[in-house]
């Protein structure tokens, strides 16, 4: 990649908690996918019993950890980073479909106030607000199957809960595939990965790109 022609600057994009959260969640998701698909019968890795026990434990761990994330995102105001927008959406889509092959600059460089591009916003919102909670709720119900009677949930069908949970797992796995690829599309292959480890991201230092999302900027300023 050749756009690094001296007009770059380092910004501190991801706070310590954010990075910790990201990598912890990475670990949890990988373990859950491996053990979950083993229970589903896709392969044998840990052995069914270990897979179930680890999956249950890690699932519950995630459920608790997620509460900290929700707390963090609301107390810091970072939740605004997830407000979906259509602004620049077309240009971002056009960039990934076409411009990236032409060596063009990303139409929406990362800023502290807007670390997600419009495409990321909508995808991460769906992930954090819908997909993960659905997985957690169905997972918790699945785990608590024996208590459904006590919880007044005898009308629930384990099959329905299980199938939603499995469908969610496929969605998350597909996300992981695309996500792992997309993080290689920075100005260098590992630029985005480095940013999520150190917190610091190198971005194009162009004032002109700025003001694409004034709403967020105004509120967090």
């Amino acid at each position: 990649m050749t756009i690094n022609n001296g007009k770059m600057k380092n910004i501190y994009l991801y706070a310590r908690f954010e990075r910790l959260w990201h990598w912890l969640q990475t670990l949890l998701i990988i373990i859950l996918l491996l053990t979950g698909f083993e229970v589903n019968g896709a392969f044998t890795l840990f052995g069914f019993r270990t897979a179930v026990e680890v999956h249950n434990f890690v699932g519950l761990t995630w459920l608790i950890a997620f509460a900290f994330f929700v707390f963090w995102i609301f107390t810091t105001g970072e939740w605004r980073q997830y407000i979906p927008t259509t602004k620049k959406m077309i240009s971002v889509v056009r960039y990934y479909m076409y411009g990236i092959f032409r060596g063009e600059l990303h139409p929406v460089p990362k800023r502290k106030e807007a670390k997600h591009n419009p495409l990321q916003r909508i995808v991460y919102l769906i992930l954090a607000a819908i997909l993960l909670p659905v997985q957690m709720v169905t997972g918790f119900l699945y785990w608590g199957y024996n208590s459904w009677g006590d919880w007044g949930l005898s009308w629930l069908s384990l099959q329905v809960v299980a199938l939603i949970h499995i469908a969610g797992a496929f969605a998350i796995l597909s996300f992981v595939v695309v996500h792992v690829y997309m993080i290689t599309t920075g100005h260098t292959i590992f630029a985005h990965t480095r940013a999520m480890i150190t917190g610091w991201e190198e971005v194009a230092d162009e004032a002109s790109v700025g003001d694409w999302e004034y709403k967020t900027k105004a509120k967090t300023a």
């Binding site: 229970v39 019968g41 099959q159 299980a162 496929f170 597909s174």
Partner: peptide, 17 residues
């Protein structure tokens, strides 16, 4: 779990992946 799978869901799921 482990015995019963939805063939359609698994087909669609792995297809999407």
């Amino acid at each position: 779990p482990g015995r019963d799978v939805s063939k359609i869901l698994n087909f669609a799921g792995w297809g999407a992946v």
